[in-house]
Amino acid sequence: MAALAALAAAEARGGAWDSILDMMKVAQEKGCDPLLWAVQLTSSLNRAGVSLPSPEFADVLVSYICWDNNVPILWKFLDRALAVKIAPPLLVIALLSTRVVPVRQSRPAAYRLYMELLKRHAFALKSQIDGSNYHKVTESIDTVLHLSEKFSLAERDAGTIVVEFIFSIVWQLLDASLDDEGILELTPEKSSMWGVKPQDMEIDSFEGFEEKWTEGQGRLQSANTTMAIELIGLFLQDKAHPMGSFHSKTEGARNKLGGT
Score class of each variant (00 low, 15 high):
199 Q>M: 10
89 P>M: 05
157 D>P: 04
193 M>F: 09
127 S>T: 13
147 L>E: 06
190 K>N: 09
92 V>P: 07
153 L>I: 14
88 P>S: 01
98 T>H: 06
207 E>D: 15
125 L>H: 00
91 L>A: 02
171 W>H: 14
193 M>T: 11
118 L>N: 02
183 I>H: 06
172 Q>L: 12
122 A>S: 15
107 R>T: 08
134 Y>Q: 00
188 P>N: 05
204 D>Y: 13
155 E>W: 07
107 R>S: 05
102 P>F: 03
130 D>L: 09
209 F>K: 12
129 I>M: 10
88 P>Q: 00
204 D>L: 15
89 P>S: 04
89 P>Q: 01
181 E>Q: 14
147 L>D: 02
193 M>H: 13
91 L>R: 01
208 G>N: 14
103 V>K: 15
194 W>S: 11
199 Q>T: 08
117 L>P: 03
155 E>D: 15
80 R>H: 00
169 I>R: 02
150 K>E: 12
111 Y>T: 04
137 V>D: 01
169 I>W: 04
204 D>H: 15
160 T>C: 09
154 A>W: 13
216 G>C: 07
168 S>T: 12
207 E>F: 12
112 R>Q: 15
106 S>A: 09
176 A>M: 13
103 V>W: 07
179 D>H: 01
150 K>D: 11
191 S>H: 11
199 Q>G: 08
217 Q>E: 13
191 S>G: 10
168 S>C: 10
115 M>W: 04
126 K>N: 14
144 V>I: 10
87 A>V: 10
213 W>S: 09
154 A>I: 03
202 E>C: 10
97 S>Y: 01
156 R>V: 06
213 W>C: 06
147 L>Y: 05
151 F>A: 09
202 E>D: 12
91 L>W: 00
117 L>E: 11
184 L>M: 11
124 A>I: 09
105 Q>W: 04
117 L>W: 05
169 I>N: 01
176 A>L: 06
114 Y>K: 09
97 S>H: 03
134 Y>N: 00
139 E>L: 13
197 K>A: 08
192 S>L: 07
139 E>K: 09
193 M>Q: 13
87 A>E: 02
119 K>N: 11
158 A>H: 10
177 S>D: 12
130 D>T: 02
110 A>G: 11
175 D>A: 04
85 K>P: 06
163 V>H: 14
126 K>H: 12
97 S>R: 04
160 T>W: 03
82 L>A: 03
86 I>Y: 03
84 V>G: 05
149 E>G: 12
206 F>L: 15
163 V>A: 12
192 S>A: 06
199 Q>K: 15
217 Q>R: 12
80 R>F: 00
214 T>M: 06
201 M>H: 05
168 S>E: 13
203 I>L: 14
176 A>S: 11
176 A>F: 03
156 R>L: 01
162 V>D: 02
168 S>F: 03
150 K>M: 15
101 V>D: 04
87 A>W: 00
107 R>P: 14
97 S>C: 10
174 L>T: 02
160 T>V: 15
124 A>C: 14
202 E>T: 11
117 L>F: 08
170 V>N: 00
